[in-house]
Design a protein around this nucleic acid. Structure first.
Length: 104
DNA sequence: CCACTGACATGAG
DNA sequence: GCTCATGCCAGTG
């Protein structure tokens, strides 16, 4: 069963996030063609039908806060995955100034 | 088609 | 700086 175009866009974009980088829900929503649909993006992650090709742990909140992720230790596991991916951290948040994904 | 939900974002207190 | 309240969009029932 094929998901809606919006969801596929989100999954594709998330899978395109380079190593050592992360993206915010709002950013993905904007790239998907619907700026402001951050809520919808979060739902796409929750209903993520392709966890192996969609590194949802690379998606964080606008301020770098890790949200959701009920797997393993939850946020803790998500944080460890990002650190293992080469993402910079500041306390318990992602250092967006260094690790936020940009088209550049 | 209507109502509720959800891993967000932004603003005000 | 933190917490509460409102607005946003798309999906699911």
């Amino acid at each position: 069963m094929k998901q809606s175009a919006f969801k596929e866009k989100i999954y594709t974009l998330t899978s395109q996030i380079p190593h050592g980088k992360v993206a915010t829900y709002g950013q993905l929503a904007k790239l998907a063609g619907s700026p402001g649909a951050a809520r919808a993006v979060g739902m796409c992650m929750k209903t993520n039908p392709h966890p192996e090709i969609v590194p949802c742990y690379k998606v964080v909140a606008s301020d770098g806060s890790l949200t959701g992720y009920s797997a393993g230790k939850g946020i803790l596991t998500k944080k460890e995955k990002l650190l293992h991916d080469g993402v910079f951290f500041v306390g318990s948040k992602v250092d967006l100034k260094k690790s936020q994904w940009k088209s550049d």
